[in-house]
Write a protein that binds this DNA or RNA. Structure first.
Length: 143
DNA sequence: AGGGTCAATGCGGCCT
DNA sequence: AGGCCGCATTGACCCT
């Protein structure tokens, strides 16, 4: 498929050509064009290829790889965010498990007649006379 | 030495 | 059928 520079494919014994490294100027031109549009029309590709002194195929490959790099970077970022979220949810889960444990202990320890429903969080029990929710009624209106 | 980067290749799928 | 693209992979090169 249109080998680098001279078009040879490097098969049947001939050593594979060294990897081309684009100059700063070439990269800047390609990058600038990519920023405007990440896909190239046929004519734009020809034009850009002439400008950066590469073959249209090399320009095409550069754009393909550039798109792949963007996708990879996004995936890595997303992975990082998901890990952070997972960590936070794990911590919250641990807190809630602990709270459940404490509430269960409370229910077991208290005589049934002393247990009342918490008016704020409904459904979670509290021992009469003790405060269950840490928030005051006024500050709890938001939820 | 080994991992990361990047130009290049090969292949399959889609479109016209 | 031919061109283009996405994707996986390769191999040279760079950095630590």
């Amino acid at each position: 498929m249109g080998g680098p520079e001279d078009g040879e494919d490097g098969e049947n014994g001939t050593p594979r050509p060294k990897r081309l490294r684009l100059s700063e100027e070439q990269t800047q031109l390609l990058e600038g064009t990519f920023r405007k549009n990440c896909v190239l029309s046929h004519s734009a590709k020809e034009e850009l290829a002439a400008k950066v002194k590469l073959t249209p195929r090399q320009v095409e490959v550069w754009f393909q790889n550039r798109r792949a790099r963007i996708k990879l970077r996004r995936a890595k970022n997303e992975c990082k965010l998901l890990r952070q979220r997972f960590k936070l949810l794990t911590e919250e889960n641990q807190r809630l498990q602990q709270e459940v444990k404490e509430l269960r202990a409370l229910v077991v320890a208290a005589p049934a007649s002393t247990i009342t429903m918490c008016p704020r969080c409904k459904g979670v029990t509290s021992v009469a006379g003790t405060q269950h929710c840490s928030k005051t009624p006024d500050t709890n209106l938001g939820l």
